[in-house]
Every structure is written in structure tokens, then in C-alpha cells.
Design a protein around this nucleic acid. Structure first.
Lengths: 212, 212
DNA sequence: TTCCTTGTTGTAAGTTCTTACAATAAGAAA
DNA sequence: TTTCTTATTGTAAGAACTTACAACAAGGAA
């Protein structure tokens, strides 16, 4: 007697989970090969799914990319904003600032593969008005929160500095180092990130508790 | 009697000039629409030339992009290196450093269209080993020269700093601001660039002669 | 079990882009 | 003027990719 146990040819997933999986697969593709690897067929293969399904969930490349951006943004900027806005968080302003900085320069986040994704997204933001608007809104909000925290520290320490500028420069410094690392992976270690960031802040705000 | 003056249907150019024109057209395309606008036909049209001619000069997209990179690099990094290496240049180390910084934050160079080009190139560098090598070599050389100049200034002023780190951070800071401006054009003015750059340097090296 | 919903597949049409090549003509040389 | 070189054109083959769609089947409901 032959075994007649039916082996399903595919697994049926809940739409939300499938959508999320597809977006993650798209991110992995971007991380591997940049925009050149952002091909519908490749992404479908990466997700272990047919091409047809991908186009069932996303009307086109543009929509998928926007979703990728939203996901990346959420995991990144929005997470930081959330931390920042959590005013109940314990500790002095300086301690909270340190936690934020540590989050920004988290080695896991700063890995080159992640920048490959951001480079692709930036390249699109510059060109796509819709994405640009979304980015601008989220980013300004993030910088504003960061600036407010820096102002708090400055107030306590009676330092006469403008949080807005320092926040912007700090983020620019880190983005720039991030970029350098992506383009030349041996150029910068995590310790370099840490030193550069804290040195910059301390030049303006005085000694901060550096944990590393 | 009808006029029989022959009107040429196209102009024959010297190969070197034509090549350069085509590269410039490619750069204009990149500036307008990023990598998505880097299409052979569009570039040929932009140059006012047939598609066939473009492929006559460049074996493929990759070769053309490499040439674009070389041109961009030449106009940018190499020019700065040349200035730096021109040891005969007049002035104290501090004055020379100021001139270099002014060149780096030249408003004409920092215009968003230019970053669109760099964003596209960076996106390729990250993915293309050949370009990555070229970039790494040129960029390291540039940073080294900049670091040496900073060390000179530090020596004169008896400041105990490491030029390498300051050079890297300075460039990262400027790249990061450059990026922010490209993503949100109203975010940063040229004065902001100037202030941020000089403030950063002066925190390490003491007052520099700021001309603006 | 049987039915039903809809997540999923496979394919194919249609579009865009790259590459190759034979034919043409501009401009210099003789 | 005539000849010759080669820069330039136009087109077409074909490769790669996106999008649309009809058919199929997994898994829950009845």
C-alpha cells in the first residue's frame, strides 16, 4: 500500500505575515546587491515564493520599495524617537543622551549591509517626491527630539549651546562615518564610532559617562 | 536654381572630446534622476547623439559608469589632493587648511544635484568591487593628505591631537551634512556648513581665520 | 466528508533596455 | 575634385524585467 499522505506544495500564510516576510526578503536583497538586486523575481525567490504572489501583494516595485522604506524607518528612526519620547525613562538627561547615542551607534545597526539598504533608499528618496516627504517628516521629528534632549543636558550644565545644531551635526557625523565604513569596510571600527561621537558631544557638553 | 549647400546631418568630433561629452551627459542624467535615469538611450539623447555612438565609445553601462566615477573623482577628490600636495602654496598651515575646507564646502560643489550623482556612485561602489578599490585608494590618499595638514597646524599650535581622526571626522561631518541637505533641501544652508565645519575644527585646533 | 474562500502558482504578454552590426557620411588628405 | 578613413547613424535581435491573469489548491467552515 502506497503512502498517500498529501504533502502540501505551499503553505498558506496570513496576509499580514506574508506581507512582512516579503518586505524582509526585499530588504535582504537590497542589503546584498543594492538597487541592482531589487528585482521582483529575485525578491520572490529570496522569499521562497512565486513571482505572482509578490505582485499580488504589491502593485508594483514602487509600492514595495515604499513599504521597505517604511519598515527600515520603523526599525530605525522611529525606534529612536520612541526611546527619546519616553520621558519616564530613568536617569539624568546626560544618562539618557548616552543611551540614545549608544543606540545610534549600535554595531548591529551600523553594519555595512544595513548601509547598502540605506544607500539604495536615499538614492530613491532624492528622486521620489513621495518618499522624500515621508523621510523629511520623520527625520525632522527625530532630530527635534534629539535636540531637545541635548538642550536639557546643556541647561543642567549651564552650557550655552544650541541643541538643534549639535543634534544635526552629531547625526551628520555618524552618518558620514557610517558611509565611510560602507565604502571601505576596514576604515572604521566600532571604537572609532564611539570615540568620535562622544568626543564631539563632550567638546560641547563636557564629560559624559562613556560606558565603553 | 535651388540652393544645394549641403547641411551636415551630424558633426564629427575628436574621439577624446566626444568621450568627455558623453560622460558629462551621463553625469547630467544621474544628477536629474539618479541611477534610474542612467539609461543608455536617455544618455545618448542627453548628449544629442545616437544610441549607437554611445555603445561605440563604451562597451557597456558598467564601463560608462566607471568613467563617470573617474570624472567625478577627478573633479572632486583629486582636485583637492592636488591643492593639498601643492606644498609651495603660500600661507601658514592654518591658512592652507582654511583654503582646503573652503574648497570642500564650496556651495557649487555641495549642491543637491551633485549629491544625487554621488549617491548613485556610492550605491554602486558598495556593490562593485572594482569601483570600491578605486574609491578606497583615492579616498585614503586624500584623507592622508588632509590629516598631514591638520597635524602641521596642530604642531605649530602645540595641540595634542591626531590628524587622522580629525580629518576622518571632519570629512564624515561634511558628508553627513551634504546628505541631509540632499534629502531635505531646506534643511541646511551654506552658512550652516561653514559654521559646523569650522566649529568642529576650532574645537580641536583653536581659532582659525574664518573668512565668511 | 464536502464546500468555499482566497492565498498561491505558473505562464505569457508587453515593455524597456542593452548590445551588436551593417550602412552612411563628415572631413581631412592628396 | 576624388579618395580614404572612421565617426556616426539607424535598426534590429534579444535579454531582462514588470505586470496581468486564469487556474489551482490549502485549510477552515459547515
Amino acid at each position: 500500500m502506497q503512502s498517500r499522505k498529501k504533502v502540501p506544495r505551499f503553505k498558506r500564510e496570513a496576509p499580514e505575515k506574508r506581507r512582512a516576510d516579503l518586505v524582509q526578503a526585499a530588504i535582504r536583497c537590497l542589503a546584498e546587491g543594492g538597487m541592482a538586486a531589487f528585482k521582483m523575481e529575485r525578491i520572490a525567490a529570496e522569499a521562497g515564493v512565486s513571482l505572482g504572489l509578490l505582485s499580488h501583494y504589491f502593485k508594483g516595485k514602487t509600492e514595495l520599495l515604499a513599504e521597505v522604506y517604511r519598515a527600515a524607518l520603523y526599525d530605525d528612526v522611529n525606534r529612536k524617537i520612541a526611546e527619546l519620547d519616553d520621558k519616564e525613562a530613568a536617569g539624568s538627561p546626560a544618562e539618557r543622551l548616552c543611551r540614545i547615542v549608544d543606540a545610534i551607534i549600535d554595531p548591529d545597526y551600523l553594519r555595512p549591509a544595513n548601509l547598502t539598504v540605506w544607500l539604495a533608499l536615499w538614492g530613491e528618496i532624492v528622486v521620489n517626491p513621495e518618499l522624500r516627504l515621508a523621510h523629511r517628516t520623520a527625520y525632522r521629528s527625530y532630530l527635534k527630539s534629539l535636540a531637545a534632549l541635548i538642550d536639557e543636558v546643556a541647561l543642567v550644565r549651564r552650557r550655552n549651546v544650541t541643541g538643534t545644531e549639535i543634534a544635526r551635526s552629531l547625526q551628520a557625523l555618524i552618518d558620514g562615518l557610517f558611509l565611510e565604513r560602507a565604502l571601505d569596510r576596514q576604515a572604521i571600527s566600532h571604537a572609532d564610532f564611539h570615540r568620535a561621537s562622544y568626543e564631539f558631544l563632550e567638546l560641547h557638553l563636557g564629560k559624559l559617562a562613556t560606558s565603553a
